[in-house]
Design a protein around this nucleic acid. Sequence first.
DNA 1: AATGAATGAGCATTCATTCAT
DNA 2: TATGAATGAATGCTCATTCAT
Lengths: 189, 189, 189, 189
Amino acid sequence: MDYAARNFAAEGYHTTSVTSIVNGLGVGKGVFYWYFASKDELLGEILGDALRSMREAQRDAIAGEPDPARRIDQGIRASLHWLSENRHLFVLMEFARTEERFAPIIRRGDDQMVADALPHVSAGITAGLLRGEDPVFLTMAILGVSGHLARTLVLEQGNDADRVAESVIAFCRQGYLATGTPALARRSA
Amino acid sequence: MDYAARNFAAEGYHTTSVTSIVNGLGVGKGVFYWYFASKDELLGEILGDALRSMREAQRDAIAGEPDPARRIDQGIRASLHWLSENRHLFVLMEFARTEERFAPIIRRGDDQMVADALPHVSAGITAGLLRGEDPVFLTMAILGVSGHLARTLVLEQGNDADRVAESVIAFCRQGYLATGTPALARRSA
Amino acid sequence: MDYAARNFAAEGYHTTSVTSIVNGLGVGKGVFYWYFASKDELLGEILGDALRSMREAQRDAIAGEPDPARRIDQGIRASLHWLSENRHLFVLMEFARTEERFAPIIRRGDDQMVADALPHVSAGITAGLLRGEDPVFLTMAILGVSGHLARTLVLEQGNDADRVAESVIAFCRQGYLATGTPALARRSA
Amino acid sequence: MDYAARNFAAEGYHTTSVTSIVNGLGVGKGVFYWYFASKDELLGEILGDALRSMREAQRDAIAGEPDPARRIDQGIRASLHWLSENRHLFVLMEFARTEERFAPIIRRGDDQMVADALPHVSAGITAGLLRGEDPVFLTMAILGVSGHLARTLVLEQGNDADRVAESVIAFCRQGYLATGTPALARRSA
DNA sequence: AATGAATGAGCATTCATTCAT
DNA sequence: TATGAATGAATGCTCATTCAT
């Protein structure tokens, strides 16, 4: 699975044939179909494992942290870290999103991640630490910044994951406005 | 190109055959290869056009706005709007990222978008309106939130693009901390 | 279709690959799937044509013969003749009978043949020429002798079709009892 | 062998895999190849047994019957009965006929059956009971009617084997001509 | 005797691409 | 310009058979 995942990520799922996987592994083609019903199923299992692994990394990272805002920070750090260590799986997730037969797996994973992070955001709001608007939106926004910057700054440009994590945390906490600047009036009525 | 782009987005690039495209268009296969050297080249042109179109939408949106922070807001609104109107192209861009032969096109587009937005962020910093840290990072963070929330909230969950844009703007401006909350000390090891 | 039919008959349907057919014909593999949706469909069309051709041969043979008994004789002659000229198609029909996905085609053909011959048998009965028991049974019995002896005597042992036809006709007319022998009493009560 | 034979008949020989047989039997694949050198050999043994069993049924049926014509009748009854009780084996025989590697087994069986029945037909002719033409032809004709009507009327249409046997006997004895009708002159060119 | 993981040749089918018309 | 028949390499998958245990 690991070998296949890395090849799928490097060459593209459709571009990587079952033949090339088993050849690269030095095994017969039959053994592939002994363990997996189909190429699609293999990708499904890779994605399922990846999502599970990522979730566990986040869970472990925030365990024992009492401050909800800090729990969020730890979650961001854990995400960036996991993503940088498993860049091939991240690439695969992005691909899966684009094919209707795999997209549900990812959407379920997204929902799960939001559901995991939501209690902490909500707790932060209750504690008066976070802006009390839509907690679901807030959660998604945090995940969005983390994911995008993991891809561009860490995976594509090779920046250090921990460094980027701190910047992401700072951005999520304060936004881009200079401290002390009064929030500008909304544009719309 | 439009017909092909919509089919690629709906069925997947690899899943959509040249035959199905020309049949759907009621033309022969020869005419396809008269205009495009290959299926890959077609996708390349679709992506190039898409990137250009998105860039123009952003350029138009911020023209004539003197306030750099407001220019950023307008850019966010334009991005969300364009993405919601061209969801098939957005899906295609996400796919292109996952195959090494198309990824450079997208990476160039990403760079371009950062380059386009950077002057406004820098101007905002100079004017003392934005936090003076890394302007490139700030730009990428803004693009990341926009892109991710466009996909999840607008494309997948069908929320209104303008509504989401305002939330994105608010998040980018202020982050998630409750106003008045002093920034927590970094967690540093 | 003719080349494929002969190969299917000689080597067996499953044993003959699409590759071997197109290679034997000196064409590319794509051309096969341009004309036939699948290997199964090809066999279906071969069988349909064969059934149609056989039926026509019988129809032509009995046209213009006023005596119903003689029409039956002519039908037998035509069947034996067609079968001897199209032994490969006969073999294919026998095979088709043994696979559930092709069997319906043959069963329909059988029904059709019975339906074609039935009026003549019935007319013979009405005219007092044929034994008045079950006309459907009589029809099937005639077809059974013809088919079996075509296979064993003509196809397998190479006897002359016309000669065999005359013997089949004689058997069907009179049975095996010596002329003048009184019919033996039935065994059961 | 019985389980395999029934599956081969129901699903087709090529369509039934060795895996599905051993799984259905709850044994490992090794045990299959311990008892049979190959899948083909298994079918060969099934066919051999089937032919032997059918032959025995016929031999038993005619034992002790002094009248040669009645021996033939009993043989017909026994054939129909055996075929209706072993329809899966009959289907398998029909299939085997269509593949060159199995056909010899069936042809040998056919020859055997003719050889078994021939003495009785010959005896009938000698006794003046049967028409004195070609005894081999007469034998084959009888077998042909029996086999064909077993398949269509008994196996396919579900009629009672004993009932069909009586009709077959009647047809074989007298043919289709109404009793008393003078044999029509041959049509000869 | 028995297991079942492993093999790999072989199969039906697809599809980007070409080119005679 | 345009057609669509033709090509054939490549793909996902099957399955009879082997063999270490």
